[in-house]
Every structure is written in C-alpha cells, then in structure tokens.
Amino acid sequence: MIRYFESEQYLKSLPESTEDTEFDECFFNSVNLNEESFRNSKLIQCQFENCNLSNLSVTNIVLRDVKFSDCKMIGINWSSAQTFSDVIFENCILNLSVFQNLNLSGIVFKNCSIVDVDFSSSKLLRANFSNSKLSGAVFNESNLEGADFRGAIDYFIDSRFTSIRKARFSMPEALVLLKSLEVIID
C-alpha cells in the first residue's frame, strides 16, 4: 500500500518509513537519510537541502522535478531508479555513485563533486556539469551531445567511445579531450 504525503516539511526527522511512499511538494532540510530506502517511492516537486543521503537505496524510485542542494550523496546506485525528470544537483557530493544505462537528459550537476562516478552507457543530452569536479568519472559509450562542461575540472572523456557533439567545454581543461587521440602538441 502506497502512503502519500503532500506539502510536508521534514526538519531533521522523517516519517517512520520512506519505502512505498509518494512525496509530493515536500521539503527536507538537514535530514539524515544515510542508508535509508526510498524503494518503490516517488518524489515529485521535492527539495532536499543540507541532507545526508549517502548509501541510499533508490530501487524503482521516480524523481520528477526534484532539487538537491548542499547534500552529501555518496555511494548511491542510481542505476536502479525508474525515472529521472528535471532533476537538479547543486553543490552536492555524489562521489562513488553509479548512473549506468539511464536517461539523464537535461540533468543538472552544478558545482558538484562527482568523483569516481560511473555514467557508462547513459543518455546525458544537454546535461549540465558546470563547475563540477569529475576526477575518475567514467563516460564510456555515453551520449553527451550538447552537454555543458564549462568550468568543470579533472574530467577525461574519450571521444572515440563517447558522443560529445556540440558539447561545451572551457579552456584549458578542454585540452584533455586530445589525450585519447594520442596527439603531440608542442
């Protein structure tokens, strides 16, 4: 049975369970969700600020118009999510997470730490990675067409295995795109 919460505010605490629940227009501030489960739940037009969501279980979760600000979200396997639509991560730590085989078109990762994250085989059309740190991020066989990497640092994208048509990059970081081509620049 699905439980439903609308326009609720959660300050440091939660309802007894977050599984099989729909949260609509809810606000979460400074809530510790470390190792919690949102399995089979829906988050619609929700906001999370200063929350710890590390190691969160997101199996079959639906995210529509959700914003995460200043959240710690380490070690989440987002690949088991059902839907991502209009999701924004701003000033978040998303290290050691997995986003494989997902349609993440239009997703926003602004000013985030996205270290050792796997985006393999994901659709990231028009994704925004601006001003984010991406060391160790994997983009093999992803579609990054129209993505924005301006101000992003420490990324490596092999254009032989990843589509980057019309993606935006800034100098000097953009020079790393030549690394996979094994060219010599004097």
Rank of each mutant, 00 (worst) to 15 (best):
L56R: 08
T59G: 04
V62A: 02
V62W: 06
L63Y: 06
D65A: 13
K67E: 10
F68Q: 00
S69R: 13
C71G: 04
C71S: 05
M73A: 07
N77V: 01
N77C: 04
N77I: 03
N77H: 03
N77W: 00
W78I: 02
A81Q: 02
F84I: 01
S85V: 14
I88E: 14
L94N: 02
N95K: 11
N95Y: 07
S97N: 03
S97K: 02
V98S: 11
V98C: 09
V98N: 12
V98H: 08
N101S: 15
N101G: 15
N101K: 10
S105K: 03
G106N: 14
F109Q: 09
N111P: 06
C112G: 07
S113G: 13
S113I: 15
I114N: 04
V115M: 11
D116P: 03
V117T: 07
V117K: 00
D118P: 00
F119A: 04
F119C: 00
S122P: 01
S122C: 02
S122Y: 00
L124H: 00
L125M: 11
S130N: 11
N131Q: 12
N131H: 12
S132N: 09
L134Q: 03
V138D: 08
E141M: 11
E141I: 06
S142M: 03
N143D: 15
L144A: 08
D148M: 03
D148E: 09
G151A: 09
G151H: 03
G151S: 05
A152R: 01
D154Q: 12
D154T: 09
F156T: 13
D158E: 10
S159Q: 11
F161E: 10
T162D: 10
I164A: 06
I164H: 03
I164W: 08
R165N: 09
R165T: 10
A167R: 09
S170Y: 05
